[in-house]
Design a protein around this nucleic acid. Structure first.
Lengths: 353, 353
DNA sequence: CTGAAAGCGCTAACAA
DNA sequence: TTGTTAGCGCTTTCAG
């Protein structure tokens, strides 16, 4: 019976464990880090001591001594994120990121730190460099629109911090994780065409996001391929927000030959389509079918519930974390995560012409 | 012209700053920590060097040397949180916590780490102790139902880590931050009584949460005070979830003299009331008024939008962080944060008897 | 396979 | 008002 167990908790260091196991500090360190060159006997004794003392290595000390910090940084745009939080529109992008990111990190003994940085500020370099210097993370997860921000990616590279870019495109370093936005947009059009729609409109998202143009491309390709009406007036520009969706819808419905279906590049814009339709007593889906993008919680509770493309945010973040932790050669192909089209009551057969 | 500026970034330590400013490490440390006994001249030179080099102290090293980690830990129940994230019902409790917590931390040079722990597990002590040992946070923020968990609070105390308990009650240590749930429930009843309702029902929440009984007490007190019908059948037990709310509503509507208004202790249960009412072609609010609790995003987009009590989650978390960072005597009174009753279309005049 | 020594970047305690 | 010294708990060398 030793007296280590009665030591004040939280004060148990590798030293106590080594003493309890009757080995050197190094051996304990090796066991903890699953390093080689440890006899089974020594390993077992150390593991027992660790369990008995409830030892857990200090992440700060590990960072100090070694080269790893066991920290991953998830970077989001400060203004946009705060605005989203304050608006309380039910967007759960951050929650889904945490879900995928935290669980994956935990599985590997890592920790995810969620951080906001100001993209548009001139001192973005200073701000990001500060966070890197303070935390020294082993990797950084970037989300749109940061993912394609050359300043950020290059700064990360300069600091030697690997990054995984969710929704990012080729042309910059780091691992790429995204869904097939082009294919997703095409799928929505196919779904509608399958219901007999021939005049399908599309409300594009904020052009600052690369995925906006991908979706437009997918829409165009599908319209072309399926031989639907390819009237340029059916393509409207939005910015992901409700107001822009409402305005675009009004323009679309004012056309000589208005669309029988509208695909919006965000749920908020799709909700706006629904609102404008209700305002004009246009029944959805009888007179107008509506499809959204993202499949946020709001999509399930809207009236009617929204058919929408599910963005696999959690899975993408989990993938990003895994790549960063396990290391991946940066020249690898992008990791494409499957999306889903959640079909709900906002889409139906085209009205009879 | 010195050559510090061209050093590889991220490798700038207090040593570089000291050299650039021509002072000792200690002086730099004092300036960074706003310590006393530094001449204005030295301070200015150090600040200039810090700015010029883009220096930012390593949080790991600060933790190692000193007594502070500049880290605050926000602890949530693992299972419940993950389930909430996966359900995607639009609950933004976590987001609001981050909003209040991260911003307040950032203002003070701290960082918030969001962490999940398994409450119901037997090895909760091991798990929590592990997180404390690994991170060594300067304080911990507890949320319901952890806030009143004696095991957790005592363990924290044993480790000497201050805690701030959101939605916590007296009887255990740490700072207390909460809203007045009793008063909030009473306010909902007053609101309904003001509309002429005399039979107001209440669906209670999960009894594992202390606030559930507070709300019941508030409901009872208001019913008493306002002289409304205080039929015990009007009080139903729920568990915050949709299904429990639906079941309770069915029982309430099956009464000989059903209520003309129902207050539910969560938005999800209130949504269930709405759903059951629609199922029976009971118009809301004409035939039945409904009030929810929490005011999650869903409350605004439901049909009709829900009158609900807004929980000031962000403000409570900000307060908790502030108390932890600035230090507060633990014997202080609880900090009561104001709630609001968001009045929307789900409540209206009582139907004429 | 194992252990001893050095040092990561910082702050506390001490001296000057 | 300053500078010096010794660690914090760990991992990395490098010797055994």
């Amino acid at each position: 019976m030793n007296d280590f167990a009665v030591k004040p908790p939280g004060k148990i260091t590798i030293r106590e464990v080594a003493a309890a196991a009757g080995v050197s500090l190094q051996t304990v360190s090796r066991v903890i880090n699953k390093g080689p060159n440890v006899s089974d006997k020594a390993r077992r004794r150390v593991e027992e001591a660790v369990a008995a003392l409830g030892y857990s290595p200090s992440i700060a000390a590990r960072r100090m001594g070694g080269s790893k910090s066991y920290l991953l940084l998830a970077l989001n745009d400060r203004d946009r994120t705060i605005e989203t939080w304050q608006l309380r529109e039910g967007t759960d992008w951050v929650d889904q990121m945490l879900l995928g990111g935290m669980l994956t990190c935990a599985e590997h003994g890592y920790r995810l730190i969620f951080e906001l940085v100001d993209t548009h500020s001139d001192n973005i370099e200073r701000e990001l460099a500060g966070a890197l210097a303070a935390l020294r993370p082993d990797g950084v997860i970037l989300t749109p629109p940061h993912s394609d921000n050359a300043t950020i990616v290059r700064l990360l590279d300069k600091h030697g911090v690997p990054c995984a870019r969710i929704g990012g495109w080729e042309g910059l370093g780091g691992s790429l994780i995204r869904m097939d936005d082009l294919e997703a947009a095409a799928r929505t059009v196919e779904h509608l065409a399958g219901h007999g729609h021939r005049r399908v409109a599309f409300i594009a998202g904020d052009p600052e996001y690369r995925l906006s143009e991908e979706r437009v491309a997918g829409y165009r390709a599908a319209v072309e391929r399926l031989g639907l009406d390819r009237d340029p007036e059916l393509l409207e520009q939005g910015d992901f927000g409700f107001e822009s969706g409402a305005a675009a819808t009004r323009r679309l419905l004012a056309l000589d030959r208005p669309p029988t279906a509208i695909v919006a590049s965000s749920d908020q814009m799709a909700l706006a389509v629904l609102a404008v339709a209700r305002e004009r007593d246009l029944m959805v889906p009888d007179a107008l079918s509506v499809v959204g993008f993202d499949d946020t919680p709001i999509a399930r509770t809207s009236v009617p519930p929204l058919t929408a493309v599910s963005q696999p945010v959690s899975a993408m973040t989990a993938c990003a974390a895994r790549l960063l932790i396990e290391g991946s050669d940066s020249a690898a192909l992008p990791h494409i995560i499957n999306f889903e089209l959640a079909v709900r009551a906002s889409t139906g057969p085209a009205p009879r012409g």
